[in-house]
Design a binder for these strands. Structure first.
Length: 559
DNA sequence: GCCGTTTTCGGCCCGACTGTTTTCAGTCG
């Protein structure tokens, strides 16, 4: 993890603890704002003065400097000691905020979600002021949701941790396998393979990110990291690298299918190689193994144990969309609404990525907290037009992220919508409508001729909120019929659409936009996670509108 | 805590929703 992300996480934790200990709400907001700005700051704060980050003054700068020196700061240590861990977990329950968490702890001694569950079940909280029967029932439901989701982390967290682990170890060869390599949107634990001397295990156990050693052997060491995620490190022989990668990448179902192929030929496939008796047929590279079995190389995101093995035997695997196919980004924000970087900085960062086009899509007025007005949007359009002169090779598109109201309507009338190059439309509230109402809502949005892309369609937040309920077949048919693209929102805690729904939508003839939904410059890189979702859904470049050349994209947008 | 063409104090995104209450507190985006 970058120093910025670690420092921001510590500050964010401090903000939470500060709120839980009854601290001033404006100060809480200051800490949160600064944490967001530090995480999104393009330069390494270990290398530059952190006071240069907007929202960071003298007090926060001191805390961050202490953090960079010793991995914590005094005020954070104090609050960690004062606020029980269980109380912090209470606030992760949806609809349970700091006020209620403090009250439950101080009045009833409840310091964990399980204690809360028992207290509700036993009737101990019946008749408590502010906690009616509906609230208690909602809390129980929230606890259940939390317990189901808390064992896995989203791919953004897992990727950062895996990269940190690999960078911290010296090896002749090192790489990650498992569900992370298959680009699943959530990851249970991280598998790292290495070709290295035995001493790597001791080095691994001594790393500062290790909280607990679960198992320590010559071939495998398992630890729980300070972030709570388990990491397994396996040392493999150099000659078996490909076989080990193939074996530990999985999925289990994929490996069963591939091993059956080997058995049919009278061979044996293990993590040490593909063998005919004692003779090694292939072991050093995955490509050799798949080749020897008479099939195409199967890219990890496709190894799900579905029909990829059959397709690979027939030579019918798709030519998957790659990160390098993307020619632009169609959903990004600036500090005009809830982004933290200026229009000029976001555009410059997009240009540095070599895009052929780039859309700025700040929020529209119906999300009142964003304070957007038509005047502000038009002024931004002027600024963008002036910026365009500086970037002749990159077409700047002025867009907006509209809000889909419960009836499926959006923020502005047609004459205003007509003026945008691209309109993304997304659901941001009213998540609990009935399936029928929600389906009608999405279909109405698709039928709006100015809506080009449905943003983060299920609105799920991994570990926090389940997706909305809708008849997706009906929604996808409407999207295909109206020429409305569905977004693959690459922001890792969204990962939305999820790959199974992408595959279903593709079946209906839908096109997709792989967007970063960036609120800061580093977020532009998140598109790699969206590519993973697209690959798991077998998408080719032709399925993704932001791989298309500009003129084809503009034709699709109908502008 | 931060911030400043209304600068060193007094503001700080604010409206909707839910479940509770009998006029509102807490939570969320």
């Amino acid at each position: 993890m970058r120093a910025n992300d670690e420092a921001a996480a510590a500050l964010q934790e401090y903000a939470e603890l500060f709120a839980l200990s009854g601290g001033d709400a404006f100060r809480v907001r200051s800490y949160q704002k600064a944490a967001k700005a530090i995480a999104g700051f393009p330069d390494d704060i270990a290398a530059v003065d952190v006071r240069g980050v907007p929202g960071v003054g003298e007090a926060i700068a001191k805390k961050m400097e202490e953090f960079l020196q010793r991995g914590s700061f005094r005020q954070l240590d104090d609050l960690r000691a004062r606020v029980p861990e269980g109380v912090r977990r209470l606030t992760r329950v949806p609809s349970l905020g700091p006020k209620t968490a403090i009250m439950l702890y101080e009045e009833f001694g409840i310091d964990s979600t399980s204690a809360l569950g028992e207290a509700i079940a036993s009737g101990r909280l019946d008749g408590v002021k502010g906690l009616g029967p509906k609230t208690l029932a909602n809390l129980l439901k929230g606890i259940e949701q939390l317990e189901q989701s808390s064992r896995r982390v989203h791919i953004g967290i897992a990727t950062a941790l895996a990269e940190q682990v690999m960078a911290s170890l010296r090896a002749e060869r090192i790489g990650h396998a498992g569900s992370l390599r298959r680009m699943k949107d959530t990851i249970g634990d991280i598998d790292i393979l290495a070709v290295a001397p035995p001493s790597i295990m001791a080095d691994f156990r001594a790393q500062p990110y290790v909280a607990e050693v679960i198992a320590a052997g010559d071939k495998k060491t398992s630890v729980r990291t300070t972030s709570g995620v388990q990491v397994d490190l396996r040392v493999v022989p150099a000659g078996s690298w490909g076989a080990a990668m193939q074996y530990f990448t999985g999925s289990k179902e994929h490996n069963v299918a591939v091993r059956e192929l080997a058995v049919k030929k009278g061979w044996k496939l293990s993590e040490y190689g593909l063998f005919d008796g004692d003779r090694v047929i292939a072991a050093e590279s995955e490509e050799d193994i798949y080749d020897a079995l008479g099939m195409q190389y199967v890219p990890p995101p496709l190894r799900q144990g579905g029909d990829e093995v059959r397709a690979a035997l027939r030579g019918e695997l798709p030519d998957l969309v790659e990160l390098s196919d993307l020619k632009g980004d169609l959903h990004t924000h600036t500090d005009l609404t809830d982004g933290i970087a200026t229009l000029e900085d976001m555009v410059a960062a997009a240009h540095a990525r070599g895009y052929a086009y780039y859309a700025v899509t700040d929020h529209a007025p119906d999300l009142t907290m964003q304070r957007m007005t038509l005047d502000k949007a038009l002024e931004q359009r002027e600024r963008l037009a002036r910026l365009q002169e500086r970037y002749p090779g990159m077409r700047l598109l002025h867009g907006t992220e509209l809000n889909i109201a419960p009836d499926g309507s959006v923020d502005w009338p047609e004459e205003v919508l007509r003026g945008f190059d691209v309109c993304v439309a997304s659901v941001h509230s009213h998540f609990t409508m009935s399936r029928d109402e929600m389906t009608r809502r999405f279909i109405a949005a698709c039928e709006n001729p100015y809506v080009d892309v449905i943003g983060h369609p299920t609105t799920r937040k991994i570990g926090k909120r389940a997706g909305v309920d809708a008849d997706w077949d009906a929604v996808f048919r409407a999207a295909a019929r109206t020429g409305t693209a569905l977004e693959i929102d690459s922001y890792p805690d969204r990962s939305d659409l999820p790959s199974d729904l992408v595959r279903l939508a593709r079946h209906h003839g839908v096109k997709f936009a792989i967007d970063s939904d960036s609120h800061a410059i580093p977020h532009l890189e998140h598109q790699r996670f969206g590519i993973g979702i697209a690959q798991r859904a077998w998408l080719t470049a032709d399925d993704v509108i932001n791989t298309w050349p500009l003129h084809r994209l503009l034709t699709f947008l109908g502008r």
